[in-house]
Simulated scan of single mutants.
Amino acid sequence: MNILVLFSYGSLRTIDDVAGFYDDIFHGHGTAEQIEKGVEKYRALEKAEALGSNTYRIGRFLAKRLQQITGEEWETFVANHHASPSIEEVAKECAEIDPKQVVTLGLTPFDSVTGKNAYESRFAKKFRAHHTSTTIVHATSFYDNQLFRNVIVDRAKTAKQWLKEEVRNKAEIVFTAHSKPGTAAAHQKMINEYNELAKHIATELPCEHYHIAYRSGQPAPQRWLGPDVLDVISELAERQVSAVIFIEVLSVIENLEAVEEVTKDAVAKARSLGMEAIQSEYLNDSADFVEALVDHLCRELGI
Protein backbone atom coordinates (compact mmCIF):
# COMPACT_ATOMS: atom_id res chain seq x y z
CA MET A 1 0.00 0.00 0.00
CA ASN A 2 1.03 3.60 -0.71
CA ILE A 3 -0.01 6.39 1.64
CA LEU A 4 -0.75 10.02 0.81
CA VAL A 5 -0.72 12.40 3.79
CA LEU A 6 -2.37 15.80 3.39
CA PHE A 7 -1.20 18.40 5.88
CA SER A 8 -3.80 20.81 7.24
CA TYR A 9 -3.82 23.64 9.77
CA GLY A 10 -7.03 22.20 11.19
CA SER A 11 -9.54 20.23 9.15
CA LEU A 12 -12.54 19.81 11.43
CA ARG A 13 -15.13 17.10 10.79
CA THR A 14 -17.69 17.77 13.52
CA ILE A 15 -18.72 20.70 15.70
CA ASP A 16 -17.45 18.60 18.62
CA ASP A 17 -13.88 19.12 17.31
CA VAL A 18 -14.01 22.91 17.60
CA ALA A 19 -13.41 23.20 21.37
CA GLY A 20 -10.26 21.07 21.15
CA PHE A 21 -9.11 23.01 18.09
CA TYR A 22 -9.26 26.34 19.94
CA ASP A 23 -7.77 24.90 23.10
CA ASP A 24 -4.79 23.70 21.07
CA ILE A 25 -4.40 27.11 19.39
CA PHE A 26 -4.20 28.64 22.88
CA HIS A 27 -1.65 25.95 23.89
CA GLY A 28 -4.05 24.51 26.45
CA HIS A 29 -4.57 27.86 28.15
CA GLY A 30 -7.70 29.03 26.36
CA THR A 31 -10.41 30.39 28.64
CA ALA A 32 -13.90 28.93 28.57
CA GLU A 33 -15.11 32.23 27.12
CA GLN A 34 -12.55 32.18 24.28
CA ILE A 35 -13.36 28.58 23.39
CA GLU A 36 -17.12 29.12 23.49
CA LYS A 37 -16.74 32.20 21.28
CA GLY A 38 -14.89 30.04 18.77
CA VAL A 39 -17.54 27.33 18.88
CA GLU A 40 -20.24 29.95 18.24
CA LYS A 41 -18.37 31.19 15.14
CA TYR A 42 -18.42 27.72 13.64
CA ARG A 43 -22.02 27.10 14.68
CA ALA A 44 -22.99 30.35 12.91
CA LEU A 45 -21.73 28.90 9.60
CA GLU A 46 -24.81 26.66 9.57
CA LYS A 47 -22.94 24.16 7.41
CA ALA A 48 -19.99 21.81 7.71
CA GLU A 49 -16.70 23.67 8.03
CA ALA A 50 -15.30 24.10 4.51
CA LEU A 51 -11.62 23.39 5.15
CA GLY A 52 -12.37 19.99 6.63
CA SER A 53 -15.03 18.92 4.15
CA ASN A 54 -13.00 19.98 1.12
CA THR A 55 -9.72 18.54 2.37
CA TYR A 56 -11.19 15.10 2.97
CA ARG A 57 -12.93 15.11 -0.44
CA ILE A 58 -9.70 16.13 -2.15
CA GLY A 59 -7.88 13.33 -0.37
CA ARG A 60 -10.36 10.70 -1.50
CA PHE A 61 -10.17 11.87 -5.10
CA LEU A 62 -6.36 12.04 -5.15
CA ALA A 63 -6.12 8.48 -3.83
CA LYS A 64 -8.53 7.31 -6.52
CA ARG A 65 -6.62 9.06 -9.32
CA LEU A 66 -3.23 7.84 -8.10
CA GLN A 67 -4.57 4.29 -7.96
CA GLN A 68 -5.84 4.61 -11.54
CA ILE A 69 -2.50 5.97 -12.73
CA THR A 70 -0.17 3.60 -10.85
CA GLY A 71 -2.32 0.49 -10.63
CA GLU A 72 -1.41 0.29 -6.94
CA GLU A 73 -3.41 0.77 -3.75
CA TRP A 74 -3.40 4.24 -2.15
CA GLU A 75 -4.86 5.44 1.12
CA THR A 76 -5.13 9.07 2.23
CA PHE A 77 -4.73 10.53 5.71
CA VAL A 78 -5.29 14.12 6.84
CA ALA A 79 -2.74 15.24 9.43
CA ASN A 80 -3.59 18.39 11.39
CA HIS A 81 -1.50 21.03 13.11
CA HIS A 82 -4.25 22.09 15.52
CA ALA A 83 -6.87 19.33 15.36
CA SER A 84 -7.29 15.59 15.64
CA PRO A 85 -5.86 13.48 14.16
CA SER A 86 -2.62 15.36 14.72
CA ILE A 87 0.50 15.13 12.57
CA GLU A 88 2.11 12.88 15.18
CA GLU A 89 -0.94 10.64 15.50
CA VAL A 90 -1.12 10.15 11.73
CA ALA A 91 2.63 9.48 11.48
CA LYS A 92 2.40 6.73 14.10
CA GLU A 93 -0.64 5.17 12.39
CA CYS A 94 1.09 5.23 9.00
CA ALA A 95 4.20 3.58 10.43
CA GLU A 96 2.11 0.77 11.89
CA ILE A 97 0.61 0.06 8.45
CA ASP A 98 4.13 -0.57 7.06
CA PRO A 99 3.43 1.07 3.66
CA LYS A 100 5.45 0.80 0.47
CA GLN A 101 5.97 4.57 0.52
CA VAL A 102 4.54 7.69 2.14
CA VAL A 103 3.94 10.87 0.16
CA THR A 104 3.12 14.11 1.96
CA LEU A 105 1.47 17.15 0.44
CA GLY A 106 0.61 20.56 1.85
CA LEU A 107 -2.58 22.04 0.39
CA THR A 108 -1.20 25.57 0.40
CA PRO A 109 0.98 26.52 -2.58
CA PHE A 110 4.05 27.93 -0.78
CA ASP A 111 6.91 26.71 1.37
CA SER A 112 6.75 27.97 4.94
CA VAL A 113 9.17 27.45 7.79
CA THR A 114 6.29 27.55 10.29
CA GLY A 115 3.82 25.72 8.06
CA LYS A 116 4.56 23.08 5.41
CA ASN A 117 8.26 22.65 6.24
CA ALA A 118 7.62 22.35 9.97
CA TYR A 119 4.82 19.83 9.37
CA GLU A 120 7.13 17.68 7.24
CA SER A 121 9.80 17.63 9.95
CA ARG A 122 7.30 16.71 12.66
CA PHE A 123 5.82 13.92 10.57
CA ALA A 124 9.18 12.44 9.57
CA LYS A 125 10.51 12.52 13.14
CA LYS A 126 7.51 10.65 14.53
CA PHE A 127 7.31 8.21 11.61
CA ARG A 128 11.02 7.34 11.84
CA ALA A 129 10.66 6.68 15.56
CA HIS A 130 8.47 3.72 14.61
CA HIS A 131 9.64 2.82 11.10
CA THR A 132 13.08 3.34 9.58
CA SER A 133 12.92 1.80 6.11
CA THR A 134 9.87 3.12 4.23
CA THR A 135 10.56 5.93 1.77
CA ILE A 136 9.03 9.31 2.62
CA VAL A 137 8.51 11.73 -0.27
CA HIS A 138 7.68 15.30 0.71
CA ALA A 139 6.06 16.85 -2.37
CA THR A 140 7.43 20.32 -3.07
CA SER A 141 5.28 23.46 -3.05
CA PHE A 142 3.06 23.78 -6.13
CA TYR A 143 2.96 27.57 -6.64
CA ASP A 144 4.79 27.13 -9.96
CA ASN A 145 2.72 24.24 -11.33
CA GLN A 146 1.28 25.50 -14.59
CA LEU A 147 -2.10 23.80 -14.18
CA PHE A 148 -2.48 25.34 -10.73
CA ARG A 149 -1.57 28.75 -12.13
CA ASN A 150 -4.16 28.32 -14.85
CA VAL A 151 -6.82 27.60 -12.24
CA ILE A 152 -6.12 30.63 -10.10
CA VAL A 153 -5.86 32.91 -13.16
CA ASP A 154 -9.24 31.60 -14.30
CA ARG A 155 -10.80 32.57 -10.96
CA ALA A 156 -9.17 36.00 -11.14
CA LYS A 157 -10.56 36.59 -14.64
CA THR A 158 -14.03 35.49 -13.50
CA ALA A 159 -13.90 38.01 -10.63
CA LYS A 160 -12.71 40.83 -12.89
CA GLN A 161 -15.44 40.14 -15.43
CA TRP A 162 -18.07 40.43 -12.68
CA LEU A 163 -17.14 44.04 -11.97
CA LYS A 164 -19.04 46.89 -13.59
CA GLU A 165 -17.73 47.58 -17.07
CA GLU A 166 -16.98 51.20 -16.19
CA VAL A 167 -14.43 50.21 -13.53
CA ARG A 168 -13.35 46.76 -14.73
CA ASN A 169 -10.13 47.84 -16.43
CA LYS A 170 -9.27 50.31 -13.67
CA ALA A 171 -9.32 47.64 -10.95
CA GLU A 172 -6.18 46.93 -8.97
CA ILE A 173 -5.39 43.58 -7.36
CA VAL A 174 -4.69 43.09 -3.67
CA PHE A 175 -3.15 39.68 -3.05
CA THR A 176 -3.50 38.32 0.47
CA ALA A 177 -1.82 35.58 2.48
CA HIS A 178 -1.75 34.69 6.16
CA SER A 179 1.06 36.59 7.86
CA LYS A 180 3.95 34.85 9.60
CA PRO A 181 5.78 35.76 12.80
CA GLY A 182 9.35 36.96 12.39
CA THR A 183 11.40 38.96 9.92
CA ALA A 184 11.14 38.87 6.15
CA ALA A 185 14.59 37.24 6.02
CA ALA A 186 13.25 34.28 8.01
CA HIS A 187 10.51 33.72 5.43
CA GLN A 188 12.33 34.74 2.25
CA LYS A 189 11.56 31.57 0.30
CA MET A 190 7.83 31.89 0.89
CA ILE A 191 7.93 35.60 0.07
CA ASN A 192 9.76 34.92 -3.21
CA GLU A 193 7.21 32.28 -4.19
CA TYR A 194 4.36 34.62 -3.24
CA ASN A 195 5.80 37.46 -5.33
CA GLU A 196 6.41 35.20 -8.32
CA LEU A 197 2.87 33.81 -8.31
CA ALA A 198 1.33 37.27 -7.86
CA LYS A 199 3.32 38.67 -10.78
CA HIS A 200 2.22 35.78 -13.00
CA ILE A 201 -1.46 36.23 -12.14
CA ALA A 202 -1.36 39.99 -12.66
CA THR A 203 0.39 39.58 -16.02
CA GLU A 204 -2.10 36.99 -17.25
CA LEU A 205 -5.19 38.91 -16.12
CA PRO A 206 -3.83 41.47 -17.20
CA CYS A 207 -3.61 44.05 -14.41
CA GLU A 208 -0.89 46.66 -14.33
CA HIS A 209 -1.20 47.58 -10.65
CA TYR A 210 -1.15 44.94 -7.94
CA HIS A 211 -0.23 44.84 -4.27
CA ILE A 212 1.16 42.22 -1.89
CA ALA A 213 -0.57 42.16 1.49
CA TYR A 214 -0.89 39.97 4.56
CA ARG A 215 -3.64 39.25 7.07
CA SER A 216 -3.80 37.86 10.63
CA GLY A 217 -0.67 39.70 11.74
CA GLN A 218 -0.47 40.27 15.49
CA PRO A 219 0.29 43.59 17.23
CA ALA A 220 3.72 44.58 18.54
CA PRO A 221 6.05 43.71 20.14
CA GLN A 222 6.23 40.51 18.05
CA ARG A 223 7.12 41.15 14.42
CA TRP A 224 4.89 39.84 11.63
CA LEU A 225 5.08 40.05 7.85
CA GLY A 226 3.35 43.10 6.37
CA PRO A 227 1.83 45.28 5.10
CA ASP A 228 -1.57 44.46 6.54
CA VAL A 229 -4.35 44.19 3.97
CA LEU A 230 -6.53 46.77 5.74
CA ASP A 231 -3.68 49.32 5.60
CA VAL A 232 -3.24 48.65 1.89
CA ILE A 233 -6.95 49.30 1.32
CA SER A 234 -6.66 52.67 3.07
CA GLU A 235 -3.74 53.60 0.81
CA LEU A 236 -5.74 52.67 -2.30
CA ALA A 237 -8.61 54.84 -1.12
CA GLU A 238 -6.26 57.79 -0.65
CA ARG A 239 -5.20 57.36 -4.29
CA GLN A 240 -8.87 57.22 -5.28
CA VAL A 241 -8.64 53.74 -6.79
CA SER A 242 -12.13 52.91 -8.08
CA ALA A 243 -12.13 49.10 -7.85
CA VAL A 244 -10.17 46.32 -6.21
CA ILE A 245 -9.96 42.56 -6.73
CA PHE A 246 -8.89 40.52 -3.69
CA ILE A 247 -7.10 37.24 -4.37
CA GLU A 248 -6.22 35.01 -1.43
CA VAL A 249 -3.33 32.86 -2.66
CA LEU A 250 -2.30 30.97 0.47
CA SER A 251 -5.60 29.60 1.80
CA VAL A 252 -6.87 28.41 -1.57
CA ILE A 253 -9.35 26.23 0.33
CA GLU A 254 -12.04 28.22 2.13
CA ASN A 255 -11.70 28.48 5.89
CA LEU A 256 -13.32 30.52 8.63
CA GLU A 257 -10.36 32.82 9.25
CA ALA A 258 -9.83 33.69 5.59
CA VAL A 259 -13.56 34.29 5.10
CA GLU A 260 -13.66 36.66 8.07
CA GLU A 261 -10.54 38.59 7.11
CA VAL A 262 -10.82 38.75 3.31
CA THR A 263 -14.31 37.81 2.13
CA LYS A 264 -15.92 39.94 4.85
CA ASP A 265 -13.57 42.49 6.45
CA ALA A 266 -11.39 43.47 3.48
CA VAL A 267 -14.21 43.63 0.96
CA ALA A 268 -16.41 45.54 3.42
CA LYS A 269 -13.69 48.10 4.16
CA ALA A 270 -13.00 48.71 0.47
CA ARG A 271 -16.70 49.26 -0.20
CA SER A 272 -17.05 51.54 2.82
CA LEU A 273 -14.30 53.71 1.31
CA GLY A 274 -16.14 54.02 -1.98
CA MET A 275 -14.47 51.29 -4.04
CA GLU A 276 -16.07 48.52 -6.02
CA ALA A 277 -14.71 45.32 -4.50
CA ILE A 278 -14.79 41.63 -5.27
CA GLN A 279 -12.87 38.54 -4.21
CA SER A 280 -11.86 35.69 -6.49
CA GLU A 281 -13.39 32.33 -5.56
CA TYR A 282 -11.73 29.80 -3.29
CA LEU A 283 -10.58 26.75 -5.24
CA ASN A 284 -11.91 24.19 -2.74
CA ASP A 285 -12.43 20.76 -4.33
CA SER A 286 -13.03 22.03 -7.89
CA ALA A 287 -12.15 19.55 -10.61
CA ASP A 288 -9.48 21.69 -12.26
CA PHE A 289 -7.70 22.36 -8.95
CA VAL A 290 -7.66 18.69 -7.96
CA GLU A 291 -6.36 17.71 -11.40
CA ALA A 292 -3.59 20.27 -10.93
CA LEU A 293 -2.67 18.51 -7.68
CA VAL A 294 -2.70 15.15 -9.48
CA ASP A 295 -0.36 16.59 -12.11
CA HIS A 296 1.94 17.96 -9.41
CA LEU A 297 2.09 14.66 -7.55
CA CYS A 298 2.77 12.70 -10.73
CA ARG A 299 5.66 15.01 -11.56
CA GLU A 300 7.02 14.69 -8.01
CA LEU A 301 6.83 10.89 -8.19
CA GLY A 302 8.11 10.61 -11.75
CA ILE A 303 4.99 8.83 -13.03
Rank of each mutant, 00 (worst) to 15 (best):
G59V: 05
G30P: 05
H200V: 12
G59I: 00
A266N: 02
D23P: 02
E254C: 07
Q161E: 13
Y42V: 10
T14L: 00
V151E: 10
R215D: 02
Y282L: 11
F61H: 14
F110E: 02
R60S: 13
N192Q: 13
P206E: 12
I253V: 09
N2S: 01
S112K: 04
A171Y: 01
I25D: 00
T108S: 12
E96Q: 15
T108L: 10
P219F: 11
N169S: 13
I245A: 03
E300S: 08
Y143M: 10
V5G: 01
H209K: 15
I69M: 10
H81S: 11
Q101E: 10
G71M: 07
K164V: 04
G274F: 09
T14G: 01
R122T: 01
S53G: 04
L236C: 05
L293Y: 03
D265M: 11
A186F: 07
A83M: 05
I253K: 03
L51Q: 01
D24Y: 12
T134N: 09
E89D: 14
A213L: 06
H82N: 12
A287N: 15
N54E: 12
K100F: 02
L273G: 05
A159V: 04
Q188C: 12
F61Y: 15
K199Y: 11
E208Q: 15
A292K: 07
K170L: 13
D98R: 11
F175G: 06
L250R: 05
T176K: 03
D295I: 10
G20W: 04
H81M: 10
A156H: 02
G38Q: 08
T158Q: 15
V90N: 04
T203K: 15
W74G: 04
